[in-house]
């Protein structure tokens, strides 16, 4: 289970392609601490290894993020999910979907893959309890048809974690 394949969607626009190549170069020069981009020849889908920060609940744990870019990136947000098994976190569903405002309504083209990664690590690091969201089972069941998290109407109400 890893969401809709990019091959089933439109390819990247010229601007998106150009921007992603620059982001990739920047990433290689200056990668965010705790993340490793797994090299592939697919510019439209990045797989990134995340290492839990030392001294947090997720220390010594490794997870994988999958980032799919839409045709009009960066005008539209990328789709970012954890490839299951996803970390146990009050805002991360067992199917890997992440409830984080910057991935949806609050996305802006001023953000980058690198800044998303930093936000996700910060979200993990500030967690005080390892547990799934209260509505995990219902949500995951509703996503069985392969629905993208970008089609979810998220409700952001907890700014503590």
């Amino acid at each position: 289970m890893s969401g809709p394949s990019p091959s089933s969607r439109k390819g990247l626009s010229k601007i998106a392609c150009n921007r992603l190549q620059k982001e990739l170069v920047e990433w290689q020069v200056n990668p965010p601490v705790g993340f490793k981009h797994k090299a592939t020849d697919n510019l439209q889908r990045w797989v990134i290894e995340v290492n839990g920060a030392p001294g947090t609940l997720y220390a010594n744990e490794t997870y994988q993020l999958q980032v799919d870019f839409p045709e009009h990136y960066p005008m539209e947000a990328p789709q970012v999910i954890f490839i299951p098994p996803a970390p146990l976190h009050p805002h991360i569903y067992s199917n890997g979907h992440i409830c984080l405002d910057i991935l949806y309504d609050s996305w802006s083209p001023a953000m980058t893959v690198s800044s998303i990664c930093i936000s996700i690590l910060s979200m993990l690091s500030s967690s005080t309890v390892k547990q799934r969201p209260a509505d995990n089972d219902r949500y995951v069941k509703n996503c069985r048809n392969g629905r993208s998290p970008k089609e979810t109407r998220w409700w952001f109400h907890d700014d503590k974690v």
Binding site: E76, A77, D105, K150, E151, T152, R153, W154
Partner: peptide, 8 residues
């Protein structure tokens, strides 16, 4: 063309 609304 692309407004940013993510609704069901």
């Amino acid at each position: 063309p692309f407004t940013c609304s993510f609704q069901e």
